[in-house]
Each structure stands twice: as structure tokens, then as C-alpha cells.
Amino acid sequence: MTENEISQVVVSAAIEVHRTLGGPGLLESVYEEALAYELTLQGCNVRRQVPSPIQYKDVTLATPLKIDLLVNDLVIVECKAVTQYNSIFATQLLTYLRLKNLKLGLVINFGERLVKDGIHRVVHEL
């Protein structure tokens, strides 16, 4: 699957998770776990809380980046559960994409009344 095809599956799965869990109000980790499970049901390879080393000049930093979900090793998904979306979430995800040399990521805010309003696509050289 391409990045765009994966993102379509992720969006569909996020809507299913949000609907099944009854909407906003739960912890981010609950939505993340449910989304990972739903994506595996859809045939995706999903890894949670993926530690990714950060290279700074000639040293690897002791504190790795933690990616919420990495889908098919191509798309990063950052899960949020906040009442107020902040544009810094997309900026952070763009940094993650650059560090991992990936092209596409999604910030999904499960704190929205309608999760479709909380999905933000972030692109790096796609």
C-alpha cells in the first residue's frame, strides 16, 4: 500500500474507534490502543510507542523520540485527546517525519465531537 492508501485506512479506522468508544472523553492511550487494534484488523502492520533514536551531529542522543503509531513502516500517526487542537501538533509531526525520513503523517485528535474534524494530514516531500 502507498502512503495515501494507508492514510485512507487510518482515517476510516479512527472514525470506527471514535464511534465505537462513544466519542471524546477518554485518555489518549485508550484511543491509541484501540486504533492500533482496529488497524491490525484491517490488515496493517502497526507498531506502538516506537522508540526512534535522534542523531545530533556526531552523537545519538540518550532520549529517543517515541512515535505513537507507525503503520506499515510508512505513516506516522500521532494520537491526541484534547478539547483544543494546537497547530504545534502538526509542526511536531513534521519534525518526526524529517527525522525518520518519512513522507506522511496524521495527527488524530479524538477529543473532537466529530473525529473527522480532528484529523490533520502532515506531508514531508510527498
Rank of each mutant, 00 (worst) to 15 (best):
M1Q: 06
E3S: 12
S7N: 08
S7I: 13
S7T: 15
V9P: 04
V10I: 10
V11C: 00
S12D: 12
S12P: 00
S12H: 15
I15H: 02
V17G: 03
R19W: 06
R19Y: 04
R19L: 02
T20R: 15
T20K: 14
L21P: 04
G22L: 01
L26T: 02
L26A: 03
L26K: 13
E28F: 06
S29M: 01
Y31P: 02
E33C: 10
E33P: 03
A34P: 11
A36V: 09
A36G: 14
E38H: 04
E38K: 09
E38C: 02
L39E: 01
L41V: 12
L41G: 03
Q42L: 11
Q42T: 01
G43A: 05
G43I: 00
C44V: 07
N45T: 15
N45E: 13
R47V: 10
R47A: 08
V50A: 08
S52K: 12
P53D: 05
P53L: 10
I54C: 10
I54E: 11
Q55A: 07
Y56L: 13
K57R: 14
K57E: 11
K57V: 08
D58F: 09
V59G: 04
T60S: 13
L61F: 00
L61H: 01
T63R: 11
P64T: 05
K66C: 03
K66Q: 10
I67E: 06
D68H: 06
L69T: 12
L70F: 01
L70A: 08
V71W: 06
N72W: 09
N72L: 06
I76C: 04
V77I: 11
C79G: 05
K80F: 11
A81I: 11
T83C: 08
Q84F: 10
Q84I: 15
Y85K: 05
Y85D: 08
Y85T: 12
Y85G: 00
N86Y: 01
N86I: 00
I88Q: 13
F89N: 12
A90F: 09
T91E: 14
Q92G: 12
Q92R: 10
Q92E: 11
L93K: 05
L93C: 10
L94H: 13
T95P: 07
L97D: 01
R98K: 15
R98A: 09
N101D: 13
N101V: 07
L102W: 01
K103L: 03
L104W: 07
G105T: 02
I108A: 01
N109S: 02
N109R: 00
F110W: 00
G111E: 07
G111L: 04
E112G: 07
R113G: 14
R113D: 15
R113T: 14
L114C: 09
V115P: 08
K116I: 15
D117A: 07
G118N: 09
H120D: 10
H120T: 15
R121F: 05
R121Q: 09
V122Y: 03
V123G: 05
L126V: 08
